[in-house]
Simulated assay, not measured.
Amino acid sequence: MSNKKVILVTGASSGMGKLSAQDLIKAGHIVYCVARSVDKMKDLEQIGGHVMKMDVTNEADIEAVVAKVIKEQGRIDVLWNNAGYGLYGPVEDLSMEKVQQQFEVNVYGVARLTKAVLPYMREKREGLILNTSSMGGKIYTPLGAWYHATKHAIEGFSDCLRIELKEFNIKVVVLEPGMINTGFTQGVRDNFSFESQNGPYKTVVNAYIKAMENPPMKGSDPKVISNTVLKIINARRPKTRYLVGQGSHFLVGLRRLFGDRVYDALMLRQMR
């Protein structure tokens, strides 16, 4: 790949996706920024980004975006599957409709877009697929069963894909952010099952709401994600995983070193 790469970024309307897209554009790359809300990406367009509407759960949107990039550039060098959100609440209380939507965005959306881009990368026999997982793909937090299930799925999906694509010189990298100061927490609030406050799980639910209001750790500046993405894209041989951000190394290391019982005790202590 040349130094100037054609990059397709999902979830570019906010948070770490938006900031990273800005920095990729400023670095001279050709960046296609996609999300459901085009209005929130006008500033990216003003600095040279190619802005398009795309819902990762919509096959027609995906086909249209990929076709446009190929028509205009003839290739896609980097696909960053970054769109996603967190659904939190007791497993018993959350409707299967909400659960299905969580998987549609966080897992099936990644699969749809990856499948659409792969033929073009295979033809060129080069490319990079960057999948945003989370430290939540290695650990777990109270009330996050469905969210963590999707991130664990992305970890396994990426590992298998990496081996499948080795002969085509297509690299697959997993980005595992820790706590980052983005709109993720607000997204959790927007999708949280507050109706569970008075149900059978009210003890842990109310403790979690309190923890959201006063988080135990301060998140990292999203610039750490932008810097890491640039590092991955510029690397001749990137690592398979990049664990970055506040709390990520501590929590993943804690579980790895001391096992699930100690980790469970820490999580339960946070919910008191």
Score class of each variant (00 low, 15 high):
residue 84 G to W: 00
residue 206 N to T: 05
residue 248 S to H: 11
residue 160 C to T: 14
residue 48 G to Q: 07
residue 201 Y to T: 02
residue 27 A to D: 11
residue 116 A to D: 15
residue 151 K to N: 01
residue 167 E to D: 14
residue 259 G to N: 10
residue 235 A to R: 04
residue 240 T to L: 08
residue 64 A to M: 03
residue 33 C to P: 00
residue 238 P to M: 06
residue 134 S to R: 01
residue 118 L to I: 13
residue 166 K to R: 08
residue 25 I to R: 06
residue 270 Q to A: 13
residue 212 M to L: 14
residue 26 K to R: 08
residue 264 D to V: 11
residue 34 V to M: 05
residue 195 E to I: 08
residue 139 I to W: 04
residue 226 S to V: 00
residue 247 G to Q: 14
residue 233 I to W: 03
residue 23 D to A: 08
residue 126 E to Y: 09
residue 186 Q to I: 09
residue 49 G to T: 09
residue 173 V to S: 05
residue 229 V to H: 02
residue 108 Y to D: 07
residue 107 V to S: 10
residue 114 T to S: 08
residue 107 V to W: 01
residue 102 Q to L: 03
residue 194 F to C: 10
residue 92 E to I: 02
residue 142 P to V: 02
residue 80 W to E: 00
residue 210 K to P: 06
residue 38 V to C: 14
residue 246 Q to F: 02
residue 149 A to K: 05
residue 89 G to E: 13
residue 22 Q to E: 13
residue 44 L to G: 04
residue 168 F to Y: 13
residue 21 A to T: 14
residue 68 K to H: 13
residue 83 A to M: 12
residue 9 V to M: 09
residue 18 K to R: 13
residue 45 E to S: 07
residue 50 H to A: 00
residue 54 M to S: 13
residue 234 N to C: 01
residue 151 K to Y: 04
residue 14 S to C: 03
residue 57 T to M: 09
residue 271 M to P: 12
residue 120 Y to D: 07
residue 151 K to C: 02
residue 25 I to C: 09
residue 115 K to H: 13
residue 67 A to I: 08
residue 55 D to G: 10
residue 164 E to R: 03
residue 242 Y to T: 06
residue 58 N to E: 15
residue 227 N to L: 12
residue 150 T to S: 04
residue 119 P to Q: 01
residue 175 L to N: 00
residue 11 G to H: 02
residue 147 Y to I: 06
residue 171 K to S: 04
residue 185 T to M: 14
residue 42 K to R: 12
residue 77 D to G: 03
residue 114 T to W: 03
residue 133 S to N: 06
residue 269 R to D: 14
residue 96 M to Q: 00
residue 213 E to C: 14
residue 149 A to N: 09
residue 214 N to V: 07
residue 260 D to R: 10
residue 99 V to D: 08
residue 254 L to C: 08
residue 222 P to M: 01
residue 79 L to F: 08
residue 216 P to K: 04
residue 10 T to Q: 03
residue 250 F to I: 06
residue 226 S to G: 08
residue 35 A to Y: 11
residue 40 K to L: 07
residue 67 A to Q: 15
residue 223 K to L: 15
residue 173 V to P: 02
residue 236 R to A: 13
residue 210 K to D: 15
residue 91 V to T: 12
residue 115 K to R: 15
residue 161 L to M: 07
residue 235 A to N: 07
residue 86 G to C: 11
residue 93 D to Q: 11
residue 207 A to F: 01
residue 195 E to G: 12
residue 37 S to V: 13
residue 112 R to I: 09
residue 197 Q to F: 09
residue 130 L to H: 04
residue 148 H to S: 12
residue 201 Y to I: 07
residue 159 D to Y: 01
residue 100 Q to A: 02
residue 30 I to D: 02
residue 165 L to F: 06
residue 174 V to S: 08
residue 220 S to N: 10
residue 7 I to P: 00
residue 58 N to M: 06
residue 38 V to L: 10
residue 120 Y to Q: 12
residue 50 H to N: 15
residue 112 R to E: 14
residue 262 V to Q: 10
residue 38 V to R: 13
residue 184 F to N: 06
residue 254 L to N: 09
residue 62 I to R: 09
residue 40 K to D: 05
residue 21 A to Y: 02
residue 155 E to S: 07
residue 208 Y to C: 00
residue 270 Q to V: 06
residue 9 V to F: 04
residue 254 L to Y: 12
residue 138 K to S: 09
residue 31 V to H: 03
residue 250 F to K: 11
residue 167 E to K: 11
residue 264 D to Y: 10
residue 44 L to H: 03
residue 256 R to E: 10
residue 235 A to M: 06
residue 39 D to G: 06
residue 59 E to R: 13
residue 35 A to R: 01
residue 242 Y to H: 09
